[in-house]
């Protein structure tokens, strides 16, 4: 057998193997892309279903009138969701940002590591456990009954570790030279943190707050046994009075055998999904801008 024949055979095999590998790789990418398309399809289908059910139910009455039984509007629920979300961010914001500053500025301390670890664990605790905790301690223990305050504190427990971690990461992303320069100029620690460091990363800290807000407004489980439900708009009481909120409408009204109830459920789903997605998308946009600059 001549060497040229052998060579061409070997080359043929190599080419065959090469083609096989190319085809297998292509198949691999098709599978990857397939999964991606499947997930994208799921998101789109969720949005389409919510929109299809929710848009026909949208009207001005929804925003101006409170719920009457299982019909009427959603003014009470919209107001309740806004109150609970704002309340939880007001409580969790300062605590979360403070904790974040501590973790960033005292990096090396053991306690700082402990707090960071506990924050990461607390983020993963099932929200229903927080709801049960709120029920035991605040609704029943302190006798607050179903109320805004019990709900807002429960939600705050859920989002505080989240805000703390985003604040910490925002501070750590700042160049070390900034910190050194400030201290070199003789600035004290509070001045460095509040006048130099925080203003430099205020964008990131705020997006952290925004994302926490989106998390907070979409929650249901921690609120069922801390906030209750009310057909009326808020009367200014922090405790002792139940409150309506949008996610309750979705969960509870879809199980009622009335068409008006289903419409309200879809309308509530549309509103809450729209706001949660808008806030999340907005924050992502801001973050990607910040990353580039």
């Amino acid at each position: 057998m001549s060497s040229t024949v052998l060579q061409s055979r070997l080359e043929g095999m190599a080419r065959y193997r090469y083609h096989r590998r190319r085809i297998l790789s292509l198949l691999g990418w098709v599978v990857c892309g397939g999964f991606f398309v499947l997930l994208g399809f799921a998101l789109v289908d969720i949005l389409v279903e919510i929109a299809a059910g929710g848009f026909p139910a949208l009207n001005t009455k929804l925003f101006t009138e409170p719920t009457q039984g299982v019909s009427g509007g959603l003014a009470n629920a919209i107001e309740g969701t806004a109150l609970l979300t704002a309340g939880s961010v007001l409580i969790a914001g300062p605590i979360g940002i403070g904790t974040g500053i501590y973790m960033a500025e005292k990096q090396e301390r053991v306690f700082s590591r402990v707090v960071r670890f506990m924050a990461d664990v607390l983020v993963g605790i099932p929200s229903i456990v927080l709801g049960l905790f709120g029920y035991i301690t605040m609704v029943v223990g302190l006798g607050w009954h179903f109320s805004v305050l019990a709900g807002a504190i429960t939600l705050a427990i859920m989002i505080t570790p989240y805000i703390a971690r985003t604040t910490e990461l925002a501070l750590l992303a700042l160049p070390g030279s900034l910190r050194e320069a400030a201290y070199a100029l003789g600035a004290t620690e509070p001045v460095v943190v509040f006048r130099v460091l925080l203003p430099s990363c205020v964008g990131r800290v705020l997006t952290g707050l925004l994302l926490a807000m989106a998390l907070s407004m979409g929650e249901t489980a921690p609120l069922i046994y801390t906030v209750g439900w009310s057909n009326y708009t808020w009367n200014g009481h922090l405790t002792h009075e139940p409150l309506g909120y949008l996610t309750y409408v979705i969960w509870s009204f879809i199980n009622e055998p009335f068409e008006s109830a289903h419409q309200l459920a879809f309308a509530a789903a549309l509103l809450i999904t729209f706001f949660a997605l808008a806030i999340t998308l907005g924050s992502r946009l801001i973050l990607s801008r910040l990353d580039k600059s």
Partner: peptide, 12 residues
């Protein structure tokens, strides 16, 4: 609970 009790319980 006494330790956790907040002034808020007297509100409303």
């Amino acid at each position: 609970l006494a330790g956790v009790a907040l002034a808020a319980s007297s509100v409303g």
